[in-house]
Design a protein around this nucleic acid. Structure first.
Lengths: 361, 361
DNA sequence: CTTTAGCACTCAGGAAACGGGAGTGCTAAG
DNA sequence: CTTAGCACTCCCGTTTCCTGAGTGCTAAAG
């Protein structure tokens, strides 16, 4: 059943009122917030209707109304007013993105902190997780017993490792080895680096001391960890200020869940979406997130890969403000890391694609 | 006034009882725990004495006793029984340290998680913070518009950065530049890299495009951040399970404090100490830590630098178990990273050097 | 058919009252 | 110095009570 205009106004008032106060909203409050010219009794009648349709519910008889997941969904999809960032907020974000620190990891950590500060919710970042491949390998000779492996991956991540050898090697061996690695391993992903390949390389270069396998081991390890690594959370403590997380047990469960990067990577499983995605309460696959909401924005991480930045908060979350801020940050990241260098079309514009309306059971 | 043997036994019983239960300990409980052959009235008399001396206090009249900071201090310094790790715990730690992941940062993060798991308290790691100097610089040519800077610092940290240039450079320029950098910048710390040095280098190598200053900028930035960076926390959520942090506000304050790495670095200010250091409640300089305790173990990070690994918990903490575990982990780290490669003397042995007994006001 | 005033009813949550019990300090005798 | 005995204290969990916000329903009015 399609809602009437008045019902939509009322629903919006309840959602926004509840977002503001975390208290159930009664008919009088609705009246005050909407400025409708009817009586509270009329509102009450409408409220029962919205109740019946499943958009609202009462914590107990004779309390005000609280939005259900369905109610939030409708609000996010249709009722929410788009929120422009204030000039100063936008500048703030740009400024912070300007002095980008060395290293993608640190950058993402900093951006996460920024998102936390802006939204006051815990923020998470997930770096592009497409399985990486080798772009280039260099071995830097330090002294007979040590060298550095420098590994360039797709996505322009650079990894390195300082290796100490229990025996001596030579600069020429390393040079030769670099060349062979670049010839044979470029474009390979983790699975493609087989033991056979390693031994054949070893023979090709005449390495009797096992340097080859040390290097290959590092490649495999790095490719493996780069697959799911790059998840990062900050600002978990902010949950504790929220009335819905006054129960330390509840807070503990969620924070714990967030602190395992494996769980976060699972969020990537979300099907492709445009700009911003909102997952409300039970729409979340993970049990631990079922009474929280997640807002995710995706950005272009270059090399055709995408990353995610998002926040976690109570279902009672200021979706419009959060979505706008995340979209803006994601846009900035795309500009910074993105392939073309030119801002993607529609940058800064807010286009929300929600999850399915179906609630996961 | 020196305590009698019986008083020490009683003090120990109170401390350990309180550590176990988080409840004030009464005369009957002391009797049960010590196995003394006197009556509860006698215990009560002794308790008043300990009370007067400032080792114990009562939350309110007619409750049992709780140790004061002074009480804990005496316990840690004299009364605590050394705790051996169980075979399986030791093996567990060794095993985990074996498969050390790529990169010092990740290693420290993993070790922190391990400490959290073992102690069930939030763990922090602070990597050696002695101001680093340049050991070696390499520039790897990728294509005319990009190259990688690989920077080896004292402490064997390797940092890298992929640089995209808005103009073309050549492999030979980079080669020459590497050589000059290695000749002129080795051993320099951040302050010593002056603008004059940079321009003179630029001239020496005939670089008209500013590649030199890009590289130098990276050096400066890295040296700067490496100074205080490397602090890391994990397992903050564990606080929420403790009875002393049931108040979300209290938990929030502490977790927030811990999440700022600047604060953690401040802990390094602690004067040199031997193996393990315990800071009890008000002995902590930081206000936010005044009713928590911190246990720190220091390890040899190679190149004459030391790092810290520690946990934060309530003053009611199982100091002996925590200290033993941290000491063991730190020993393992020293072996792994330490200069000599041979385990330092007394590895695994527990030698506690406390903070001053004076309480900070 | 919709709106509205009126009213009885419900119920969460804070305040006050209560009682049990753990633990104390003190006294006086061993 | 130790100990039995006892009166006293005070925390804390439970119960009771009360208030007030908010409801649903009914019946009259638009």
């Amino acid at each position: 059943m399609e809602l009437t205009g008045r019902q939509k106004k009322i629903l919006r008032a309840v959602v926004e009122g509840y977002i503001d106060t975390a208290e159930p909203i009664g008919s009088h409050t609705v009246l005050a917030r909407t400025g409708l010219t009817c009586s509270s009794a009329t509102i009450r009648n409408e409220l029962v209707a919205l109740d019946k349709e499943g958009y609202l519910e009462q914590p107990h008889t004779s309390a005000g109304r609280v939005p259900t997941a369905k109610g939030y969904r409708l609000y996010v999809n249709e009722l929410m007013r788009e929120r422009e960032l204030s000039q100063s907020e936008a500048e703030e974000i740009n400024r912070k993105l300007q002095n980008t620190p060395a290293g993608k990891d640190k950058l993402m950590a900093d951006v996460g902190k920024m998102a936390t500060e802006l939204t006051s919710y815990p923020a998470l970042t997930i770096s592009a997780a497409a399985s990486a491949t080798v772009k280039r390998v260099d071995l830097i000779y330090i002294d007979p017993n040590s060298f550095i492996i420098v590994l360039l991956l797709t996505g322009d991540t650079v990894k390195n490792k300082l290796v100490h050898l229990p025996f001596s090697s030579t600069e020429t061996l390393l040079k030769r080895l670099s060349a062979v690695f670049n010839a044979n391993f470029t474009g390979l992903s983790e699975e493609q680096i087989t033991p056979e390949l390693i031994t054949s390389t070893e023979r090709a270069v005449g390495d009797t001391m096992g340097v080859t396998s040390v290097v290959a081991g590092f490649l495999i390890e790095t490719l493996m960890t780069s697959r799911d690594a790059g998840a990062n959370v900050s600002g978990e403590a902010n949950l504790l200020k929220l009335p819905e997380f006054q129960d330390p047990d509840k807070a503990h469960r969620l924070i714990n869940y967030l602190s395992d990067s494996q769980n976060l990577s699972a969020l990537t499983a979300a099907p492709d979406f445009g700009d911003v995605k909102v997952l409300i309460g039970p729409e979340n696959a993970a049990l631990e997130l079922r009474d929280s909401s997640v807002v995710l924005a995706s950005y272009d991480a270059g090399d055709g890969m995408r990353g995610l930045i998002g926040v976690v908060g109570p279902t009672r979350m200021d979706y419009s403000a959060v979505a706008a801020k995340l979209a803006y940050i994601a846009g900035g990241l795309s500009r910074l890391l993105g392939a073309g260098g030119s801002p993607p079309a529609g940058f800064g514009k807010l286009m929300i694609k929600g999850g399915d309306s179906d609630v996961q059971k």
